[in-house]
Design a protein around this nucleic acid. Structure first.
Length: 265
DNA sequence: GCCCAGGGAATCG
DNA sequence: CGATTCCATGGG
């Protein structure tokens, strides 16, 4: 285990990890987490402007936390929108994580018509059953591995009706019917259509995968919480001028809505 | 017991 | 096209 310390201004480890973009973590205490991504594990701590990463591979997490992007610039895109300016003040320390593409795809397939607490449980069982053992826990199961499973194999993870969707995704990614590296190079709408060929991937899941797995900032996933935000705060629609901060805006609005409704109390 | 959750597929008009 | 209904599961 190496330890590296990164300087980040206007950052919140709590909000970044707990805002619903990622599921494989345990909170140790305020501003300290154990987190897993693909086949990497880290113990993460925030102390002021320091992000302390203990991991075999701290460099993975430097990329993961998108440390080379200037978020102040992205947040400046909120100027002139009263509600977004409030949201920015309230939880503007969120960063859009650069997650593994396959892990994001599989995870958000499992998220449909489900709640975050239960999603975490399903993914945890999925990893401990079919993920390779790594230091500190388990890797995320590879699509190669999952493509060899059947519905009975997945029963123990208790994913419900989503198990067949998960199998379909692994199959199509493995045989390159949906080539994740090609999707990465596609125009947004083409990328979205490609992902939607997978059973269990509709508009919302595709937008989540594109935002969190492909870092497409034009994505704007709309779930039940975002529907409320749009209805209550943006009856005339959101500004089209957000451009490269659209995805970030969505995530901050989503998180703030949930905090305000006492989800985390 | 009911309702809800980072929805989507299948069906029907 | 849009509107319904069904899909498993567990927490509140």
């Amino acid at each position: 285990m190496k330890e590296k310390i990164y300087k980040i201004k206007n950052f919140s480890l709590n909000d970044t990890i707990e805002c619903g973009q990622v599921f494989r973590f345990t909170k140790i205490k305020d501003n300290e987490f154990n987190l897993y991504s693909k086949d990497n594990y880290a113990n993460l701590k925030q102390d002021g402007e320091n992000l302390i990463v203990k991991s075999k591979n701290p460099d993975y997490f430097e990329d993961y936390f998108d440390l080379k992007t200037d978020y102040n610039k992205l947040l400046k895109g909120f100027d002139g929108d009263e509600y977004l300016e409030k949201a920015r003040k309230y939880c503007g320390g969120i960063r859009i994580l650069r997650q593994d593409k396959w892990e994001a795809l599989a995870s958000f397939i499992l998220s449909s018509n489900n709640n975050i607490k239960r999603i975490k449980g399903i993914i945890e069982r999925f990893c401990s059953l079919y993920g390779e053992e790594i230091e500190g826990g388990y890797a995320f199961p590879t699509y190669d591995m999952v493509s060899k499973l059947n519905e009975d194999d997945l029963k123990p993870i208790r994913a419900g009706f989503r198990d067949k969707y998960l199998l379909d995704s692994a199959k199509k990614v493995k045989n390159k019917e949906v080539d994740l590296e090609e999707v990465d190079n596609m125009e947004f709408l083409d990328a979205k259509e490609s992902l939607k060929q997978i059973k269990g991937v509709g508009d919302k899941v595709a937008e989540c995968v594109l935002l969190f797995g492909f870092h497409r900032m034009e994505a704007f996933p709309i779930d039940v919480w975002m529907k409320k935000v749009l209805k209550e705060k943006y009856p005339n629609g959101l500004s089209e001028q957000l451009n490269s901060s659209r995805g970030l805006a969505q995530q901050i609005l989503y998180h703030m809505q949930r905090i305000e409704e006492g989800v985390y109390k």
